[in-house]
Design a protein around this nucleic acid. Sequence first.
DNA 1: GTCTACCCAACGAACGTTTGTTTGTGGTAG
DNA 2: CTACCACAAACAAACGTTCGTTGGGTAGAC
Lengths: 191, 191
Amino acid sequence: MVATRNTRADVVAAAGRLFADKGYHGTSMRDLGKELGLLGSSLYAHIESKQDLLVAVVEEGARLFQESAQTALAVEGSADDRLHALIAGHIDVVLDNHDVVGTFLNEARVLDDAHRARVIAARDAYESAFRSVIADGISDGSYRSDVDPKLASIFILSILNAVQRWYRVEGELDPGQLADRIDRFVADSLR
Amino acid sequence: MVATRNTRADVVAAAGRLFADKGYHGTSMRDLGKELGLLGSSLYAHIESKQDLLVAVVEEGARLFQESAQTALAVEGSADDRLHALIAGHIDVVLDNHDVVGTFLNEARVLDDAHRARVIAARDAYESAFRSVIADGISDGSYRSDVDPKLASIFILSILNAVQRWYRVEGELDPGQLADRIDRFVADSLR
DNA sequence: GTCTACCCAACGAACGTTTGTTTGTGGTAG
DNA sequence: CTACCACAAACAAACGTTCGTTGGGTAGAC
């Protein structure tokens, strides 16, 4: 295979990999260059700054989750169906974008105030999708009335986000089984 | 208040604070000095190296969780009682040692291979406390037989560890209520 | 069909700054 | 008097970034 030239997308992808693995401050521009087979200085043909790269990765993560929520909320059927769709969608995003999600979850705090505020807002909006679906499920009698939608959302998202830390596709559990197990664990707490 | 001189414990405590807040690589020795009101170079009267500090903080975290598990496992009564003790103990450790725990959870990956291996072993041992208690609960009929102790442990610890990220004592929920809510969410999934 | 102009990814050297750490000195509490 | 703690200066290495340059590829003009 002939070595192809790199594009900005390649650089952002590599940055996601290294940021997720070693952290933003633990990754130097020369590290990143080496990952792509070029010098650290050469990266500046594609980007404006290192921060610029972090912004790109984190915002991609935010977009992925937002799109997933949008799709799940559009599912026809019961609130419980939509909660299942939210959970399945989240797992898909995590598994298909391990490094972007890892960076999104762990490195967003490094962003400047303005960008970090946008990420926090995106997370709040995402969490509120869970909250409202759970609230709907309580209203229609699917879930117990003593469930607190806000806390339940936090607990569910805690489980879902942790998947990025421990789950590996090569393990005993395939992705479908994983979703199923989480689904059941969560469902038993709600109904 | 007269400015007292610093001890090694002060330095480790301050390191925990900054490592949890800005990450290991995001914290410079001069940052750390400023936090204590002295120069970065002055820290070397108390420590051998920056890595040394990270090791101290992370191992303190490991010790806290290990002691908590030991205490919980010694509780007389049912397996369910011991699971409650594990959960309450975990929450106590997180709330009483916010920064140490944050560093333990997020910055251990920066450690050299030898120390990181020890942390991973400590986490495995801690998780196995949850696993065995849940397995006992299944045996004695308290928990459903289709519960997977390993997965349940991961899910419970996901919820518990996430507490460090979102919970603040100043919020609406006091620590006792928090423990209660987590207890109920978890219990409903197991029995 | 060839020449020419341009674009763009990448180089390699250099920049000023910050990094972790060492060393020698001085003050202060016990 | 003696530890101990902190200072201040210095170090080499690594940091993010800039700059002038280069070589290969593409497109338009002749």
